[in-house]
Design a protein around this nucleic acid. Sequence first.
DNA 1: GCACTCACTTGCACTGGGTGCAAGAGTGTG
DNA 2: CACACTCTTGCACCCAGTGCAAGTGAGTGC
Lengths: 196, 196
Amino acid sequence: MTVKPTPLREQTRSVVRSLLARTAIELFAAKGYDNTTLDEVAAAAGISRRTLFNYFRNKEDLALSSLAEQGDLIAARLAERPADEDPWAALRAAFQVLEEIDMTAEGRLEFITLLFGNDSLRAGHAEKQARWQDLLAPLIEPRLPDTERGTLQARAIAATAIVCLQVANEEWVRLRGQADMLDLYDTAVQAIRRPT
Amino acid sequence: MTVKPTPLREQTRSVVRSLLARTAIELFAAKGYDNTTLDEVAAAAGISRRTLFNYFRNKEDLALSSLAEQGDLIAARLAERPADEDPWAALRAAFQVLEEIDMTAEGRLEFITLLFGNDSLRAGHAEKQARWQDLLAPLIEPRLPDTERGTLQARAIAATAIVCLQVANEEWVRLRGQADMLDLYDTAVQAIRRPT
DNA sequence: GCACTCACTTGCACTGGGTGCAAGAGTGTG
DNA sequence: CACACTCTTGCACCCAGTGCAAGTGAGTGC
């Protein structure tokens, strides 16, 4: 049974990672991102600052690690959709996975408020989500009709769906969470796909 | 004639700014963004590092200042379009202004390659363009049919158009500039707006 | 129990981005 | 010449991020 030789270490590692991210975000939300030093985060987590860098590439990564995971979740869900489903329906279904993430509406709101409150975090956020394209586009391309199939088209659809999600997200924050995010997403998609 | 009391200083300031940005980008392109210190940029421009910060908020701003200007140009052009023109046509027309910017294809390619070659620059790029939404959305909203008018809808359209431009941009780089950027943009928009 | 290995942790020193402050240089005004 | 005002600069400082080398601690074989 040596089929999986190293999952133990990696498993603990990812647990530690999410634990560190959690305490960091708590601090960021409480004191503000810029006003929180990595020394403080390390102290709060009971490790050295240097060790923090063994788990995260940089301060931003500490705040945004969950976004990369979300991208993976969406991609995985998208890959499971029936191959003949049209791209928009498949994407819409894949995005449902976001609602299943273990997080209260308050926690989500707090997190997004944190994101929007700082320039470099907003930038990192935008970029991380832009990288979702790289995951989703290859899964979109085979779903396009033969005459319209191409990398450019697939990327355009992936990017558009993601950006509609972002817009819905912003609106959701503006409404203080008093709406269903996917409803807002649907409204956004409808607005752009309606013929003029 | 004291109607315009301070344009002189501001004018010289913006000239200096673009001059500094130009030399900085030259250095970045030559040596790489990360391998170029602000001391070197300052030295190349003949000023002190400290003064550099009088003109730019940070290193990233030094590389990306042109993007903010482009956003202003697009917004200005969009505002000039006839009020009854539909949003997509107006946006498409506004984006034409990018082709008129004084820059060779090589220079453009060099600049975009610089952008894509560094994580934080890519992030800043994505964020700056995302902020174009704030400029464009208000100009889109009045162009929507009464039944579909709303901030969410306007932002969705602005964001989508911008992201299609980004995708077209990436493809344009992948093709080494051997294509018309707006043609690629049209293909992208067509791909998302075609009914499924 | 003991040496050995191997990964993880930590401290230390250093680079570079970014800021506050206060002194200096330049220019126009009375 | 004194002044006011702005722009520039040097200096000291904080913090993010990295390379390195030593320390720690949990297995593993003997």
